[in-house]
Computed example of a mutant assay.
Amino acid sequence: MNTITVLVTGSNGLLGQKLTEKILEEGRVKLIATSKGKNRYPTQNGYLYAEMDILNPEQVKQVIDKYKPDSIIHTAAITNVDTAEADKALCHRLNVDAVQTLISLCEEKNIQLVHLSTDFVFDGANGPYKEDDAVNPLSYYGESKVMAEELLKNSKANWAILRTILVYGITNDMSRSNIVLWAKGALEKGLPINVVNDQWRMPTLAEDLAEACILAVEKNARGIYNVSGKDYMSIADLVRKVADYWALNQSIISEISSESLNQTAKRPIRTGFVLDKTIKDLGYNPHSFEEGLKIVDEQMKKNY
């Protein structure tokens, strides 16, 4: 069997770097990594890197024409919910228009498109959610992701949508922060932190999400799949588990309500996913949150 060639967008991001790492370690697919600007991944061997600005349709076409991938894993997006709310035009260009560019090319060249989406497509009134539950986003970020999903559903492309929740992990250059690293860093410095106790999530280890992306390619998955960790917890519980794992002072953690934060964008209260379909169809097997923290800890010790 010929090795599948996979082009990854946003390869400098957390998920993008984990995909590079996993593909280099396991060699299950051939990688074309693409991102805006220079390659941030420390190893340059064993794969190809191309600079590609997802907002430049002509450049996207040139890169895809040159490398002729069998599949594209599209990780590039605005994921900061408040930034998306504050700059809706940029959010639309990155999270919707760029997806349309990829869809058109994938339709034309018969390329599979694996697209990353989010639990924020839901309003959080009655999570955990199944793949076919009705969407109702509360923020423009969530709305932009729903629009992208609709473009895919209405296209002739061979598409799979992987929805995920609160991705955490570590990159070699520590350039990508997330809730686990933020909480650990603040508590180690002895900085008092406020954490919401009325939002529930299923945090996702970046390695697990990368594995799900590769499984979706290998199995030529079609449709929507939920991809998250298996443990359901409040944000406050999550931060306390981080404190527990690294034996940090919990007395400086203050639990607050979402209302008191005055964030630009509204967040759903209870998301979380039912993972049965992804486990059954893709063979997805996520780590527990505790196991995920252990993996992050081991990587930190190795790298620093």
Rank of each mutant, 00 (worst) to 15 (best):
L238G: 00
R176M: 13
G142D: 06
N197M: 11
G169R: 04
E211S: 08
L151C: 14
T171R: 05
R201K: 13
L151P: 09
Y141M: 02
A157V: 04
K156M: 15
W200F: 15
V146N: 07
K145N: 04
N226Q: 15
N126I: 11
N226V: 15
N136K: 08
E188V: 02
G185F: 08
V146C: 10
E149S: 10
I214Q: 11
M174G: 03
V135T: 14
S228D: 06
L162G: 01
Q250L: 01
W182K: 15
L248E: 02
L215A: 10
D132E: 14
I214V: 15
A210I: 09
M174F: 13
G229W: 09
S228E: 06
D237S: 13
L205D: 07
N172C: 09
Y141Q: 00
R240F: 07
W200P: 09
L187F: 03
V227S: 06
S139M: 01
N126V: 11
S228Y: 05
I253G: 02
L152M: 13
L151S: 15
W159E: 10
D244Q: 10
K184F: 07
V195G: 03
D231H: 12
P137E: 08
V167G: 07
I256D: 04
G185E: 13
Y232E: 14
W182H: 15
P128T: 12
A206W: 05
M147F: 15
G223L: 01
M147L: 15
N194E: 10
V217D: 13
K189T: 04
L248A: 02
I179Y: 08
Y141V: 00
D198R: 09
I161C: 08
N136F: 01
V135H: 11
Y245E: 07
L215R: 12
A212H: 07
A186W: 00
A148K: 02
A186T: 03
P203M: 05
K130H: 12
T204L: 00
Y129P: 05
T204A: 03
S234C: 06
D133G: 00
L238N: 00
M174N: 07
D208R: 04
I170G: 09
E188H: 02
A183Q: 09
G229E: 09
P203N: 05
K230F: 03
E255C: 14
P203A: 05
A247Y: 12
N136W: 00
P192L: 03
A236W: 07
I253C: 01
R240N: 10
D173L: 08
I253N: 01
E255T: 15
Y225D: 09
A148V: 02
L152S: 11
G127N: 11
D133T: 00
D231E: 14
N194Q: 08
A186N: 04
P137A: 08
I161Q: 07
D132K: 12
M202I: 02
A125K: 13
Y232K: 14
I179M: 12
Y225Q: 09
D123A: 05
N178G: 10
D132N: 14
T164A: 01
A221W: 06
V121Y: 10
L187I: 02
G229K: 06
D123Q: 06
M147W: 12
A210S: 12
